[in-house]
């Protein structure tokens, strides 16, 4: 990619951010919230394997939201299942690459 192309693409992205200002604002707020929740959840799952209700209790995030994030994090390899505790699966942070 040439410098001119890079510049024009940067301009295009800037233009798109302006055109979609409203949805970008919504997405930015969502991303901020997601980052905060994911950091909190990663911290509790790094500590030890936990069930969804345990993670919800530790973080104060509603259990249904925790499950949604766990499903997302599991899909993208951030957390893994670590057995069962009664009727609940346990989740822990996936091994991080060195």
């Amino acid at each position: 990619m040439t410098t001119t192309q890079t510049l024009s693409r940067a301009e295009l992205l800037k233009q798109l951010r302006t055109t979609h200002a409203e949805s970008v604002k919504r997405a930015q707020e969502l991303l901020k919230e997601q980052k905060k929740m994911q950091q909190e959840l990663c911290a509790v799952f790094r500590e030890k394997a936990r069930t969804v209700p345990e993670a919800a209790e530790s973080t104060g995030i509603p259990a249904n939201k925790v499950l949604w994030f766990v499903a997302a994090m599991k899909k993208y390899g951030v957390v893994v299942e670590a057995g069962m505790c009664g009727d609940y699966p346990l989740y822990k942070k996936a091994e991080e690459e060195a």
Binding site: A63, L67, V70, D87, Y88
Partner: peptide, 8 residues
């Protein structure tokens, strides 16, 4: 799992 809290 049930969506409310991940219980089987």
């Amino acid at each position: 799992l049930r969506p409310g809290d991940g219980k089987e």
